[in-house]
């Protein structure tokens, strides 16, 4: 069922990682990604993996959930791996083969890189509620307001989109069940048949999405929503000492990876 899609789903909890400020975690993810792309040697990959596993352990997110989230990306991961295996020149593993040792090495590195990238991102979304995430993003992007970037509007759009993903999934589920109850078949048939079978889902889904958007606009307006100007928050975000510690840890981690790269390790 559609409910099993875990893409960016929040798992409530009360661990150290859950308690960190959303801004800290966003910056952390940024540092993590930079570190990941700086990693070149197996040593540095090992370090990144160690840090990822550590974060997973601290946040008590089971690897099973991470792998479940990786499933939709499996195709891209495998494809990247295959392309790297076949299109890298170097010493063939057997004389006359296209597959080279370098190719295998690169394929493994690319697969690791993508997997870790997704795992890191999932760690953020699994441990941070969407609301906190967009609030954090808005706070982080505040300086851009000076350049007349509509930061508030962008983040409120984002939080609304995030807010309505589960609703729409639920709605899709419901419509699908209703059409299945009328004998609709989404699983068999040729590609064209299956694409056509989606119509009975998409039409009602769009109709209800527009209705919802309309209702939401009216609801917001009747509560005097007028954009970000002069808006106050119920939950004030404050960085705690653990946030600073986490950030320092992140910087040390990035520095370590860069140093490893510098020494060619």
């Amino acid at each position: 069922m559609l409910k099993d899609i875990t893409l960016g789903q929040f798992f409530p909890g009360d661990t150290l990682v859950h308690r960190l400020d959303a801004r800290t975690k966003l910056i952390w993810l940024l540092l993590y990604i930079v570190a990941l792309f700086q990693a070149k040697s197996w040593w540095s990959y090992g370090l990144v993996i160690a840090v990822t596993v550590l974060c997973m352990a601290v946040s008590r997110i089971s690897p099973k959930n991470i792998f479940k989230g990786l499933k939709p990306m499996l195709f891209i991961i495998v494809l990247t791996g295959l392309l790297n295996i076949f299109y890298t020149t170097g010493t063939p593993i057997l004389p006359g083969w296209i597959v080279t040792w370098e190719g295998i090495g690169r394929a493994v590195a690319m697969i690791l890189r993508i997997t870790l990238l997704i795992a890191g991102t999932f760690l953020l979304t699994y441990t941070t509620s969407p609301i906190a995430l967009t609030d954090g993003l808005e706070k982080l992007l505040t300086p851009l307001k000076k350049l007349h970037v509509p930061v508030h509007e962008m983040t409120i759009m984002m939080s609304m989109a995030l807010r309505f993903i589960p609703t729409l999934i639920e709605e899709t589920d419901k419509i699908m069940s209703a059409q299945k109850a009328r004998g609709a078949d989404f699983e068999t048939g040729r590609l064209i048949d299956r694409a056509r079978a989606l119509l009975p889902i998409l039409v009602p889904l769009f109709v209800s999405a527009f209705r919802r958007a309309d209702e939401l606009a009216v609801a917001m307006e009747s509560r005097c929503y007028h954009g970000g100007e002069g808006r106050t928050r119920m939950k004030q975000m404050k960085l705690q000492s653990i946030d600073y510690l986490a950030l320092i840890f992140g910087l040390v981690f990035l520095a370590a990876v860069i140093v490893l790269r510098h020494f060619g390790l």
Partner: peptide, 20 residues
């Protein structure tokens, strides 16, 4: 599982939202 749907008809809550 397919055949039972012809024997047991289910009308969901607010079924008008399934019209397409």
């Amino acid at each position: 599982r397919r055949d039972v749907k012809w024997q047991v008809g289910l009308v969901f809550q607010y079924p008008e939202y399934q019209l397409f």
